[in-house]
Simulated assay, not measured.
Amino acid sequence: MKPPAWLFRFLLNLWPPFLGAGIRVKRLAADFSDIEVQLKLSFGNRNYVGTHFGGSLYAMTDPFFMLMLMHQLGRDYYVWDKSGSIDYLKPGRGTVRAHFRLTPETLDEVRRHTAHGDKYLPQLLVDVVDQQGEVVARVHKTLYVKRKKR
């Protein structure tokens, strides 16, 4: 049995890599279709020049698309992170946020591509934005999805 969204959010916020970096899950939809994550600039995630450490920016985006898809598709699917990359577009200062969304169209596409047991590698994007709404970094994620044999 998977925990309800409120409990999952609570546990993610206590997860040592997130807790240590100052990453907070601010909102998690009950159906796992929408997640908002934030990272405040602090001594623990500041780099040598006083802006957000790039590793913390990537860490705040790393597991969410995989977790969302796992919960949305259920136990009949394998879902793994296959690859990821990040483009740093401007220095991150202050509080930054990432807003993850999985649309019904994306879920339909995944189900359609995996219906006959084929693997599918959806590519998803999320922007990390600052308090002014400007994009600080763009994260590209490729997932591995395959329907389990019955």
Results as ranks from 00 to 15, higher is better:
W6S: 07
L12V: 10
L12P: 08
N13F: 12
N13D: 13
L14R: 15
P17V: 05
G20Q: 14
G20K: 14
A21M: 07
I23L: 10
R24C: 08
R24E: 06
K26C: 02
A29M: 00
D31A: 06
F32G: 04
D34R: 03
V37Q: 00
L41G: 01
R46L: 11
H52W: 10
S56A: 15
S56G: 08
L57I: 09
L57D: 09
M60N: 07
M66P: 09
M66H: 10
L67V: 06
H71C: 09
D76C: 04
Y78A: 00
V79N: 05
W80E: 06
K82S: 03
S85Y: 08
Y88H: 01
L89Q: 14
V96H: 09
F100I: 02
F100R: 08
F100G: 06
R101N: 11
T106I: 13
E109N: 11
E109M: 12
R111A: 09
R111N: 03
H113L: 13
H116Q: 07
H116D: 02
Y120S: 12
P122F: 04
Q123T: 10
Q123H: 09
Q123V: 13
V126D: 12
V128S: 00
V128P: 12
V129D: 04
V129M: 03
Q131H: 02
V135E: 03
A137E: 02
R138Q: 13
R138S: 15
H140G: 06
L143T: 03
